[in-house]
């Protein structure tokens, strides 16, 4: 699935930055914009649930989407903006069949080396009784998100992916 029209919403890319080739396309919708703070992240997740909650009561199908989204947004807060809290996060969400399409943009620092971290489980120093306390974020993102793509253009980070919707 590709965008047939130019990107819109939020800060527009320059005219020559076509949106072709973007594999996940929740780009053409009005963004949810939140502050890059832990409470901003909470607000974004609550908004995601409000928008995509099933009409009828039943098993929670949004749990893993919430997990991935939380990790991605926490990374923006903690790394791209380094807890400065002075930048926006734009979140574009769209449901496509049994998938939640996600497009996250921020204007903080780029990913280190311009690439996304890998998804290996954090390791302790080899002792069974010393499990790691951190490093699970990218593991969870890599485990649950599909078609992950990262681009840095004109001071903007843009991460796109989709999450299959289903019971935990």
């Amino acid at each position: 699935m590709k965008l047939s029209n130019p990107c819109r919403g939020g800060i527009d890319p320059p005219d020559d930055a076509a949106c072709e080739g973007v594999t996940v396309t929740a780009g053409g919708i009005d963004p949810i914009v939140v502050e890059a703070t832990p409470l901003g992240v909470r607000n974004a997740l609550a908004e995601m649930r409000r928008k995509f909650a099933p009409a009828a009561a039943g098993p929670d199908t949004l749990g893993m989407a919430e997990t991935v989204l939380a990790e991605v947004l926490n990374n923006v807060v903690e790394h791209a903006y380094r807890r400065g809290g002075d930048g926006p996060i734009e979140l574009r969400l769209e449901r496509g069949g049994n998938r939640l399409l996600v497009d996250v943009r921020d204007y903080g620092a780029p990913m280190p080396d311009g690439t996304m971290p890998g998804g290996s489980l954090p390791v302790s120093n080899g002792l069974d009784d010393d499990p790691p306390e951190g490093g699970f974020g990218w593991f969870l993102i890599r485990a649950l998100a599909r078609d992950l793509s990262y681009a840095r253009n004109n001071g903007q980070n843009r991460l796109t992916f989709f999450v299959p919707l289903g019971e935990a």
Binding site: G63, T67, E133, G134, F136, G137
Partner: peptide, 20 residues
């Protein structure tokens, strides 16, 4: 209902602070 990687890390940290 919801625990993220920070929460998971905090649970691990609690286990460690209890000691061996």
């Amino acid at each position: 209902d919801f625990l993220d990687s920070s929460g998971l890390g905090a649970v691990v940290a609690v286990m460690k602070l209890l000691g061996p």
